[in-house]
Computed example of a mutant assay.
Amino acid sequence: MCLPIDDAAMLCWLKSQKSVLEAWRNELTCRPDTTDSLIDRVEQHYNWLSDEIQRLDMPRRAA
């Protein structure tokens, strides 16, 4: 089942998720009980999402 989501809407949603990850990452650094492992996992996901957004956004920039 495919949802009728256009590329612009999808990229907007993905970018909003990136902002949420940024806020979460910043919040984790302030908590004394946060482990390095947790920060690393959030950072890894943030980096992956950033790369995917850039890859998906590239054809739109070329047009």
Rank of each mutant, 00 (worst) to 15 (best):
Q17V: 10
Q17Y: 09
Q17R: 14
K18N: 08
K18Q: 11
K18V: 04
K18Y: 03
S19N: 13
V20I: 06
V20M: 04
L21C: 02
L21Y: 02
L21A: 05
E22P: 05
E22Q: 08
E22A: 09
A23H: 02
A23D: 07
A23M: 06
A23W: 00
W24H: 08
W24S: 11
W24M: 12
W24D: 09
W24Q: 13
R25H: 09
R25L: 12
R25Y: 03
R25C: 04
N26E: 10
E27V: 12
E27W: 05
L28C: 01
L28I: 05
L28T: 03
L28M: 02
L28H: 00
L28Y: 01
T29K: 01
T29F: 00
C30V: 11
C30S: 11
R31C: 11
R31A: 10
R31Q: 13
R31G: 02
R31P: 01
R31V: 12
P32E: 11
P32Q: 09
D33C: 04
D33E: 14
D33H: 02
D33N: 08
D33I: 06
D33P: 00
T34R: 00
T34Q: 00
T34E: 00
T35K: 04
T35Y: 00
T35A: 07
T35Q: 03
D36G: 14
S37G: 14
S37Q: 07
L38G: 03
L38R: 08
I39P: 00
I39Q: 04
I39W: 01
D40K: 12
D40M: 12
R41Y: 02
R41I: 06
R41L: 09
R41V: 05
R41N: 11
R41Q: 12
V42W: 00
E43S: 13
E43M: 08
E43T: 14
E43L: 05
Q44M: 14
Q44Y: 07
Q44T: 12
Q44H: 15
H45E: 06
H45D: 05
H45F: 10
H45L: 15
Y46C: 07
Y46K: 07
N47I: 10
W48T: 13
W48S: 10
W48A: 14
W48M: 11
W48Y: 12
W48E: 04
W48C: 14
L49Y: 01
S50H: 04
S50G: 15
S50T: 09
D51L: 15
D51N: 13
D51T: 07
E52V: 10
E52D: 07
E52P: 11
I53M: 04
I53P: 14
Q54R: 13
Q54M: 12
R55Y: 04
L56I: 02
L56C: 06
D57H: 05
D57S: 12
M58I: 12
M58Y: 08
P59R: 06
P59G: 12
P59T: 08
R60M: 15
R60V: 15
R61V: 14
R61A: 15
R61Q: 15
R61C: 14
